[in-house]
């Protein structure tokens, strides 16, 4: 059995995370684990070592920017690529809102599963 890409999705929208997991997993290429809080996501990143993290920007508690900063501060998680999933509208706003995430990839919500998969594969392709 081929290696499946492990995705960690950190989003307080449980239903969104649920559908994203269904849609990614049914392709057979991905396994998806989810966390609805930033702090929980950081723990999972350290223990599960995902290949990629989908990270919501606006969350209660630690927001996406703070989560990303902590992940980059940690040797075991700093290399994991992050794609921000955001309901904010564009890159400029993302950068204005959170200086710490400058330069990172992002996807504007709502996103179709086709687009999501293309973007994930693109980022992983860059990594390879």
């Amino acid at each position: 059995m081929a290696h499946k890409t492990k995705i960690l999705m950190i989003d307080d929208e449980e239903d969104l995370a649920y559908f994203v997991r269904l849609n990614l997993e049914k392709t057979g290429k991905f396994t998806v684990i989810t966390a609805k809080r930033g702090s929980e996501g950081i723990k999972l990143a350290k223990t599960e070592k995902p290949d990629l993290i989908l990270l919501d920007l606006v969350m209660p508690g630690l927001d996406g920017g703070q989560v990303a900063a902590q992940l980059m501060d940690n040797a075991s998680t700093e290399k994991i690529p992050i794609i921000f999933l955001t309901a904010l509208v564009n890159k400029k706003q993302v950068e204005d809102g959170e200086g710490k995430i400058g330069g990172r990839d992002y996807i504007a919500k709502p996103v179709t599963s086709e687009e999501l998969i293309i973007r994930i594969e693109l980022v992983l392709g860059k990594q390879a």
């Binding site: 929208e13 239903d15 309901a87």
Partner: peptide, 21 residues
């Protein structure tokens, strides 16, 4: 309100995608 609307829209789009097949 944009932020609050786009999250549910994301759920609808992903939900439909999960149903489709």
């Amino acid at each position: 309100i944009a932020h609050e609307i786009k999250n549910p829209l994301g759920i609808i789009v992903q939900g439909i995608d999960s149903l489709k097949d």
